[in-house]
Design a protein around this nucleic acid. Structure first.
Lengths: 212, 212
DNA sequence: AACCTAATCTTGATATTGTCTAGATATAAA
DNA sequence: TTTATATCTAGACAATATCAAGATTAGGTT
């Protein structure tokens, strides 16, 4: 009942963590939102996982490697958020595009620092295959939603509208998160402003795909 | 001819730099573009200004203080770039709005890291009055350009179009700088893509302000 | 001209960071 | 049981931001 191993497990923590990789990612995500990208440190992640400062090296080659993993999961969550909103919408493509945009913005608003990390120049230098793949998936989801609205438009128009739609959505939420838009608005008013912006965007897309 | 002061000025560098504040800002801007926000260090700035590691403290309270100054000047240059392009355009408000957008994007493309710093969450925490003022000026320039296109539209529509136009411009160039749009495009093709995006945006603004 | 106050810069120290090396401990395969 | 491998700790190193104390100089005051 009270042999060596049991005593160790009960009184003090075990030598091996067991789930350190996951624990580091979890702690890192929280730390990121709390202190911002520049306040993110590997040692603090280790501290929060109750582990020595050098332990993370066995799971992540460098601090950038951990950030890349966190960013990758961010893209997966972004995709889930987009799909969740779009799935709830009626099947009209225009409505789905708006809904997917709402999901995009909702994710960014919920995880502002993570979102900024994902779309930062630093993240671009990580260059892990998983990150590139996750980003591409999110990208494709967006392309599909726009093209569904204007299925018969020429490829050139489609690309222009994909650029335009993505830029509007991304730019708006980005400016909001940076405090450049709607600083004194209530969350409710801000959301209305975002929806108005989305409506304007979708209208332009629909019109562009009307007749060749 | 060869007294103490002259000898010092000729043979070795003087004890007082004389223009250290400016030198630090200049070195810092260059360093920022070279190494990114996370690679920016105060000591490297001091090194490049040929000064001891503690010298910057007499001109900037902290590293964030120097970054705030650099960001502030970035906004002033952004304003200049917008005005330069807009001024070159004909006096048609819609053409001016497009031109100002081109100036905005050109600045961002020329100083990508600085641009990211200016519009980062970190910069938002600096909270120096000069930075806030500079950002507000740029903001107002944009508002004026959009409202000039739809002078008789109701205030609500105006605000929606200001949001929409700014989001499009900012979002597009942001996505380009992050490598999410037009990664394999030539600079020429990329510029064409940006202009197409701007044209789509302006058309939507013009249409929205057509009739009440 | 002499002085003296304040601004400017240097040297040195402290705490914190990312990463490396060696060694300790546990897991799991043979 | 033995042995190889994965996982973790401890310690060290160079680099960083910031602070404190002292050196140097500029510019105004007498």
């Amino acid at each position: 009942m009270a042999d060596g191993r049991m005593a160790r497990a009960e009184s003090s923590k075990p030598y091996h963590h067991g789930e350190l990789r996951e624990a580091l990612v979890t702690a890192g995500r929280k730390l990121l939102e709390e202190r911002g990208i520049r306040g993110f440190t590997l040692r603090e992640c280790a501290r929060r996982a109750s582990v020595s400062h050098a332990a993370p090296a066995h799971h992540f080659a460098s601090i950038d490697d951990l950030l890349a993993e966190i960013a990758t999961r961010g893209y997966q969550e972004l995709i889930a958020a987009m799909e969740a909103e779009a799935g709830r919408a009626v099947d009209a493509p225009a409505a789905r595009l708006v809904a997917q945009g709402v999901g995009y913005m909702a994710f960014a608003a919920a995880r502002p620092v993570l979102f900024q990390l994902m779309f930062s120049r630093e993240a671009n230098r990580f260059e892990t295959p998983a990150l590139a793949e996750a980003a591409r998936s999110a990208h494709h989801l967006h392309i599909a939603a726009v093209e569904a609205v204007i299925p018969r438009a020429p490829a050139e128009v489609k690309q222009r509208m994909v650029d335009f739609a993505w830029a509007s959505i991304h730019g708006f939420i980005t400016l909001v998160l940076e405090g450049q838009i709607g600083e004194d608005d209530s969350p409710r008013a801000l959301k209305a402003r975002g929806l108005a912006m989305l409506a304007t965007m979708v209208e332009a897309v629909v019109r562009a795909g009307g007749d060749p």
